[in-house]
C-alpha cells in the first residue's frame, strides 16, 4: 500500500504543538508586558490645558499638598483645586502672564478648567484617600515624586497587585502622619523597618486584604 499521507505529516502534530506553545507563550508574554497596568499606565503624562508645574509650586515654593488638594484628608477623593484657589496667589503673582490666561478666565467666568485625569482606578474599586494619608501613607508611595514633576506623570501602576504589595506588608510603606506630605523625606531601609513595625503594632494597622475593602 502506498502512503496515504505524505511523510512530512509525521512530524506535523509535534510541530503544531511546539508552534502553539511558542505562539501562546509569546502572546502571553506580550499581553503580560504590554497590556498590564505597569506598561499601559506608568508614564502616562497627558498634556494639561494649563501648564501647571508641581516642581515649581510644591517643590521650589514648598506649597503643602493640602493647600490645593484640601479634600484629601476628609474624603475618598483628593480634589483638584478650584480656579479661585489658584487666583489666591496669582491675582498678584504673574498677574498678567499669558500662561495663566485660562485660569483667570475660568475664575471669572465660572467655566471650569478641563484638567485631564491622570490617576484613575476602575469604577468597581472604591479607594479612599483620607484613610491612607491620615494613617501614614505618603503621597509619594503611590504618586511618586510629584513635587519634582513639571507635568504630572502616572508613576506607579496602581494595579491591584500594586495595592496588595503594600497591604500585605504595610510596615514597608508607613511613616509618621506628620511626614506624609514631605515627599522628599528619605527614610533608610533600617529606619523604615523599625518604625514600620512599630506603627503597625501601635496603630493596630489592619490593611485589609479582603475583597470588601475596595470592591463594594
Amino acid at each position: 500500500m502506498s502512503d496515504i499521507f505524505p511523510r512530512w505529516t509525521n512530524r506535523l502534530p509535534l510541530k503544531v504543538a511546539i508552534g502553539l506553545i511558542l505562539i501562546g507563550g509569546a502572546v502571553t508574554a506580550g499581553i503580560t508586558y504590554y497590556c498590564t497596568p505597569k506598561y499601559t499606565r506608568v508614564g502616562y503624562q497627558p498634556i494639561q490645558p494649563v501648564n501647571f508645574s508641581h516642581e515649581i509650586h510644591a517643590g521650589q515654593l514648598g506649597v503643602d499638598c493640602r493647600y490645593c488638594h484640601d479634600g484629601v484628608e476628609k474624603s475618598w477623593y483628593s480634589n483638584i483645586p478650584s480656579s479661585t484657589t489658584c487666583m489666591n496667589c496669582h491675582n498678584q503673582v504673574l498677574k498678567d502672564d499669558p500662561r495663566l490666561a485660562l485660569v483667570r478666565e475660568s475664575a471669572q467666568s465660572g467655566k471650569p478648567i478641563p484638567w485631564v485625569q491622570v490617576h484613575k482606578v476602575p469604577d468597581y474599586v472604591y479607594f479612599n484617600h483620607s484613610v491612607h494619608v491620615n494613617r501614614g501613607v505618603s503621597c509619594v508611595e503611590c504618586h511618586g515624586q510629584v513635587n519634582h514633576m513639571d507635568e504630572v506623570r502616572h508613576e506607579k501602576p496602581l494595579s491591584m497587585s500594586f495595592c496588595l504589595d503594600c497591604h500585605r506588608n504595610p510596615e514597608n510603606h508607613l511613616r509618621n502622619p506628620q511626614d506624609v506630605y514631605n515627599l522628599d523625606l528619605q527614610i533608610s531601609p533600617e529606619t523604615q523597618e523599625k518604625n514600620g513595625k512599630k506603627f503597625v503594632h501601635e496603630w493596630k494597622v489592619n490593611a485589609s486584604q479582603n475583597c470588601s475593602a475596595c470592591h463594594r
Binding site: R41, P81, S83, G110, P112, I113, K120
Partner: peptide, 12 residues
C-alpha cells in the same frame, strides 16, 4: 489605554 477623561473642578 483608557480614553482621556477630564476632571472639571468647581471654579469657586
Amino acid at each position: 489605554r483608557r480614553p482621556e477623561e477630564h476632571i472639571l473642578p468647581f471654579t469657586r
